[in-house]
Amino acid sequence: MDFQNLLIESKGRIQYITINRESKLNALNKQTLQELHVALTEAFGNAEVGGIIITGAGKKAFVAGADIAEFVGVDVEAGRAIALEAQTNVFDVIANGSKPVIAAVNGFALGGGLELAMSCHIRIASDNAKMGLPEVTLGLIPGYGGTQRLTQLVGRGKALEMIMTADMVTAAQALQSGLVNHVVPQEELYLKAEEILNKILTRAPLALASAIKAVNAASTDGVNGFDVEIAEFAKAFGTEDFTEGVAAFMEKRKPEFKGK
């Protein structure tokens, strides 16, 4: 696919997906969401890609929200479709992906932008980042998983405060509440994201996928996360990576995992 709103760049086994609508503060319009679905699906299916960093073009914004102009004239059923398609085709694809995804949050991450960051497995923020869910100022609520993922990350009380006041939080406040994992100077943002992802990529790929699945099960309705953990733990014993990992440990050398 010839992407109009995304920049795709490979750096070793890391694939950068950059939302490239800088003049619109990288707002998520319908086309961008469609392109994200394709780019993510291709990245997860590409054996050469070990992990993904999602970011926004420029220094002002990661993603400043959804493109509100596209909401004009939308009725109830169309609104349902917007939320369902975005959650199913982009946000849940990231959260349930088999490879680690890091959000490099540079600047504003508001509304759908914060929801995009929260769907990623790890969030690194620049020290000038500001985050919030301002939907109630438009007569809406977060619709791309924001009410659920924010509650999981920061707790019910803080999530309700952020959503109902629509106030932004600073990077330092986001770090304190557990909304982001790390805060660094803006010029170090991508270095930090790569540092963490490159460390992760030295680990067994199949084990990483199992870890994501097991952790996600902790917040999945109707699923016993302990049962998922046991099943994924057991499955690991049948992999070549497990055999290699144990052999490397016994031989006091670094393992060479193949994702098999």
Rank of each mutant, 00 (worst) to 15 (best):
L175F: 13
R203I: 03
D241Y: 08
D227Q: 10
L150Q: 01
P255S: 10
K252T: 06
L28R: 03
A47Q: 15
E229A: 13
D127W: 10
K99S: 07
T220S: 14
D227E: 11
G112S: 03
R80C: 02
Y16H: 14
V72F: 10
N46S: 12
A109I: 02
N128H: 12
M118S: 04
G225E: 08
N128T: 14
M118G: 02
V101L: 05
K252A: 11
A174W: 05
T151F: 03
F108P: 00
V228E: 02
A69N: 14
V154C: 05
K24H: 14
A204W: 08
F249Q: 14
V101W: 10
I14A: 08
G65E: 04
E70A: 15
N5C: 09
K213A: 12
P205A: 08
A78K: 15
I68C: 00
Q173L: 01
I94H: 04
L153Y: 06
E70L: 10
M131N: 07
G107Y: 08
I53F: 00
A172C: 00
R149I: 02
F91W: 13
Q176T: 12
T243W: 00
Q186T: 13
G50I: 05
P185L: 06
I17V: 12
I230S: 07
A248R: 07
Q176N: 09
G56M: 07
G73A: 11
V228M: 09
A172I: 05
E70I: 04
V74C: 01
P255G: 03
Y144S: 00
D2R: 15
G145V: 09
I8F: 09
T55A: 13
S126Y: 02
I163N: 06
Y190R: 11
L140R: 14
L206M: 13
V184H: 09
A95D: 03
N216C: 07
R123Y: 00
I196P: 03
L160T: 07
E135P: 11
L7N: 13
A104W: 01
G132Q: 12
E135G: 08
M131G: 02
A211Y: 12
A27W: 04
